[in-house]
Write a protein that binds this DNA or RNA. Sequence first.
DNA 1: CAAAGTAGTCAACCAAGTTGTCTAACCTTA
DNA 2: TAAGGTTAGACAACTTGGTTGACTACTTTG
Lengths: 149, 149
Amino acid sequence: MEPVPMLLAMTYRAMGDQFHDRLRQIGLEPLRPAHGYVFRFLKERRATTVDIGQHLGVTKQAAAKIVSELDEWGYVLREPHPTDKRAQYVTLTTKGRDYLKLADNLWSDLEGEMAEAIGEDTVATIRQGLAAYLRHVHGEDRPGLRPVW
Amino acid sequence: MEPVPMLLAMTYRAMGDQFHDRLRQIGLEPLRPAHGYVFRFLKERRATTVDIGQHLGVTKQAAAKIVSELDEWGYVLREPHPTDKRAQYVTLTTKGRDYLKLADNLWSDLEGEMAEAIGEDTVATIRQGLAAYLRHVHGEDRPGLRPVW
DNA sequence: CAAAGTAGTCAACCAAGTTGTCTAACCTTA
DNA sequence: TAAGGTTAGACAACTTGGTTGACTACTTTG
């Protein structure tokens, strides 16, 4: 019997691959999961590079690299911090928000296909079960995402 | 609402981190998930480096690196292939089998703790649901594991 | 107002993959 | 059975996505 985490990893991979394929068909920049997590993070708040690094669970230098890419591609922009002259706020551009909408649609398509395959209630149980487990392990403050393999 | 794959990744990470912590307390070599997948693969069969690469979903060169490490640490050994003079069979040593037992115990501990937190039936549903989804996507022949982020 | 701490950048390094190339052995198949 | 194509494994150069460390400019605190 396989350990549950192996099933989690394989499922993540299977869905992620499909997501990525469809994105590529649309012809977007080579966005990686980390970029998506940044979008999702910035949707709700303004944040500095350091904040983003913290959220992803990587160093600020790694976060800076990701932010630069997103900036080059026009998904985010950096504006001066109102009170702290060292810092910059990173914010989503319209292109960034559009991407996020597109991605959410793709994800919910994929989730719909999953529901067709194994039943809507099963998907709901999985969602709630995992969320509950994460709350159990981490409390309310979830730690960074971070590479997985 | 978060996409399901994000929950999968976070849960994988949470369980994997705990697993890794406990392993480290025991003081083993710095085994990575890929090593574990190799053990699990070799448990059932004898295989060449190329086979292993295929199973992991990486190039044979990458697989060779992993096999070398396992060999250095004494978890596997390479013996000549009986009929093909180019090839070598990689097989688990006793140390390898012992590790696998230990790892399985750790995983089932973790799964037990998960069951305590969210209910045994929920865990069962998750397990069966994900397995069914994977069969749906891949048929019987599951593709390689592979990096996830 | 001095000392300690922090945001961002630059640079060197590292780990774990990749591609490309080569040799020796294997497998048609004409 | 020799010839041409394929394959296992090794070696090397490179790529990617991260790391640590050092430095400057600014901020916060005692």
